[in-house]
Every structure is written in C-alpha cells, then in structure tokens.
C-alpha cells in the first residue's frame, strides 16, 4: 500500500475503514443475537433480527441451560379400510421407536432418522397452543408437515388398507434418575393426544399411493 500514489492510498484507507466497520458491526449484531435479552436488544431487537435472519441465524444453547431430560415418542394410530371394505383402527405405532432402532448401532445416523420427526414435533408443539389450536400460518404448515411425514412412514409400515384418518400422540417419559443419585423421578409416560385428522391427497408425499394399499396386496 505504501507504494501507491495518494488517490489509491485514500481509496485503500477508506476501504480499510469500511471493511473493518462492517466486520465489527456484524460481530456486534451476532453477539446481541446470541446474548440474553438485554437493554440494547430491548430497544433495537428488530434491527438485530433484520440483520441476522434468515442467513445468520444461530442457536448455540447446546443442551443448555439444561439438557432435555425426557424422551418424547411420537406415536400414531390409523383408521383404515381393510380389503373387505370394513373399517379398522390400528394400535398405537411408535414412530420414534422406529427412528431409535435405526439409530442404534449406526455410526452415521441420517437426518431422516435423527431430526425429521423429532424436529417436526418441536415445530408442531411450538406453533400450537395446549388445546392443539394452530397459531398462525406456521401452525397450519406444521400440521400438514406432520401428516406427510406420518403417511410416508405408514406407507412403509403397510397396514393392509387405505388410510382414512390418523391420530397422533406424544408420549413423554422422564429419564430415570441416575442409579448413583438419590433423586426420585416419576417415569410414567404422559400422553398428549392430537385430534383425528382426515387424510387427503395433499397429505401424501411423492411415492406414497394410499389407494395401492387397498387394492394391490
């Protein structure tokens, strides 16, 4: 830079100032984004969000402040039309247990097994109230997403008939206290049941043919 003539030196100096300022502002904003709610974010929260979302979003509260201390299993029962035309209702099918079985002794678990259903439930729970009423468009999207995941899994499960309606429940069971501790923890499962959902064509992801189940087998 020293060998440059004055106009180029000025250009370089201005660039240096701008680039340094941009880097500092970016880091400051990302810091505010990961920091707890504070005086500055209470006043300028929107500006921070506007800068950070969608591409610089981050959440590093990994297992913090406390790790999850319960296993949440998503289970489904389906009402289907059997081959003879009669309606039957299946038992509860534990989809999370199927995920767990595929993760077991797997060096490279897939996002399909580890994240898809687990995070879809987080999405659902976060966009619905406790009465299972959807909160805004995200709530509606999450229901649709849930149904499509479930139909994909049921397709592989093969109930032997066309699925008409499905019902989900989340079975939450606290992790038992460590044997070396004196804590007492109730590990009986708590169920949150969702209403019955009628399955429509929009709930079938690619490759899932609900009618095939009724005729082919």
């Amino acid at each position: 830079m020293a060998g440059l003539s004055l106009p180029y030196q000025v250009a370089a100096a201005v660039s240096l100032a701008l680039i340094a300022a941009l880097a500092c502002v970016h880091l400051a904003v990302v810091f505010l984004h990961v920091a707890p709610s504070n005086t500055v974010t209470k006043q300028h929260g929107e500006a921070v969000d506007g800068w950070v979302y969608p591409e610089f979003e981050q959440n590093w509260k990994l297992f913090a402040p406390n790790p999850l201390q319960q296993n949440i299993a998503i289970q489904v029962r389906a009402e289907y039309t059997a081959r003879d035309g009669s309606r039957s209702t299946s038992d509860w099918i534990d989809l999370s247990a199927q995920d767990g079985a595929q993760i077991r002794h797997n060096l490279l678990p897939s996002h399909i097994q580890q994240n898809q259903l687990r995070r879809a439930w987080d999405f659902y729970a976060g966009s619905h109230d406790t009465e299972n009423r959807p909160q805004g468009p995200r709530g509606r999207l999450s229901e649709s997403y849930m149904r499509r995941i479930v139909m994909l899994r049921l397709d592989r499960h093969d109930l032997g008939g066309r699925v008409e309606r499905i019902r989900l429940r989340a079975s939450t069971r606290a992790i038992e206290a460590p044997e070396w501790s004196h804590e007492k923890i109730d590990t009986r499962p708590v169920h949150r049941e969702l209403p019955w959902w009628t399955v429509t064509a929009a709930d079938l992801p690619g490759g899932v043919d609900n009618d095939r189940a009724a005729t082919a087998r």
């Binding site: 297992f63 402040p65 790790p67 999850l68 201390q69 999370s96 077991r104 992790i175 460590p178």
Partner: peptide, 24 residues
C-alpha cells in the same frame, strides 16, 4: 450452561446419553 441446575449439580451429561435419539 452455567445457568442450568443440571450443569451445576454435575449430572447434566448423564441425560443426553439417555435420550433415545442420541444413543447409538
């Protein structure tokens, strides 16, 4: 983590290792 009771009482690491989704 410092703010979490489980990290304070020294048992936190036990729990992720008991989650069905994270125990291959």
């Amino acid at each position: 983590k410092i703010q979490g009771s489980r990290w304070q009482d020294g048992t936190a690491l036990y729990y992720p290792l008991k989650l069905d989704y994270f125990t291959p």
